[in-house]
Design a protein around this nucleic acid. Sequence first.
RNA 1: CGGGGUGUAGCGCAGUUGGCUAGCGCGCUGCGUUUGGGACGCAGAGGUCGGCGGUUCGAAUCCGCCCACCCCGACCA
Length: 478
Amino acid sequence: MDEKKLPTQEENFSDWYNQLVLRAELADYSPVRGCMVVRPYGWALWENIQKALDQRFKATGHVNAAFPLLIPQSYMTKEKEHVEGFAPELAVVTHGGGQELEEPLVIRPTSETIIGTMYARWIQSYRDLPILINQWANVVRWEMRTKLFLRTLEFYWQEGHTAHATEQEAIEETERMLNVYADFAINEAAVPVLPGQKSESEKFAGAKATYSIEAMMKDTKALQSGTSHFLGQNFANAFDIKFLDENNQLQYCWTTSFGLSTRFIGAIIMTHGDDQGLILPPNLAPYQVVIVPIYRKDEERAAVMSVVNKISDELVENGFRIKVDDRDGVTPGFKFNDWELKGVPLRIEIGPKDVEKGSLVLARRDILGKAGKSFIPMEGYLQAVGDTLRLIQENLLAKATAFRDEHIFEVSDYETFKDVVENKGWALGWWYDDAENEANIKADTRATLRVFAPAEGEGVCFYSGKKTKQRAYFARSY
RNA sequence: CGGGGUGUAGCGCAGUUGGCUAGCGCGCUGCGUUUGGGACGCAGAGGUCGGCGGUUCGAAUCCGCCCACCCCGACCA
């Protein structure tokens, strides 16, 4: 047993994941079961995710606000499906200030109810619409089984909540935000997600329709990585969110909500990571470049560090996120492995030979060993760093997309389907929508309908043999 | 909630047929030599053995109860 090495993905994917999260210092277990501490390195990654998303939210007209953590219990019961869906996983506060509360308060599992209540107060006229608010928050859902980032009792996310005058507008918003998520996932995280609609049984409690982006992890399991809900008038009815239209008619609003959580960090880890550790997409990596100085004697150290300092200053000035690893007492070899574990996309090595020759070494995280190293002259290195980071970003997306496509199989009969979802990856096939059949398949194979797929024409359902116009992806999931 | 497992130094573990001063590896501190793919030597620091109770001359070790965490299944972002 070599303690320096991670378990390989091949021998134990779950163990690989758990150890990697801890050893890369993304997160740690908390004293409370099922909760996690997000460590600075993990939080820095989350902050970059936040920036990329927030920018997109602002660009689509949303504004940020903050709603309270505590929600009167009675609010949760106002929407029938919502309460049924969330009741089992609520944390409830019964005491405050040493006294039992008259009405227990639930810790928000999501904020439709409290925000709906406020919207009812704020919206009177069609002139108040649409209202497009997002909040960055933590929520609590009392889950049975937890796993760092993927499912914890408390997690961090953003939840967008919008209210519209017409059904059409709300549907457009739902689709718009699904596309925002897909764009973010693909272009920032290099996670090639498939966006689509969820089945009836997989949809959000209280929604008319739920859409999600589905990502394939390296063990071929699916991960729901972001969701967008069309809530119809369900919450408007339950919370009395009404407005007067142009014709002085009182109408209920149409609302939506959408969320993406720290779970997405899990998606990044399991989409790109390898046996050496994390591989972070340059667009989101806390450090895009790590500089490792190499020297033996004090004279060498001085010469090397003056070059290191110069280029680190220049890189910062040019907007790169960098780290100089000037730790004493650990060897360069150790540092290489350490930053590979942490997934820094690009490493610059500078030693006495480089100083002498006026060159430096670039080492790509996505191509290990000698193959990923290049020796480049000092002049023009800024260009090379930028270019290489772009190449890495592209390569990560290309590799992940190829992996995903290699593990999706078209199926037309149930035997093949079972073989695919149990041994090979995702199944794609014609599907006659039927909740009972869906449940049977789940009981039989543990695979669930991830999302409906684009479909043209008509085909025969792989399970029921019925004619259908719908196609769907099925897979085992997290 | 069902099944399985584990609690001994920061981490990973040994010790568990009761026995004397509780040990090993990694990590940590100091000094020196090292440094282009996970360095080495010397000297150190660090423990209510998960908790409570019981048996005993004596408990990490035996018994009882409790607690916590991890893994696998039913629910979920």
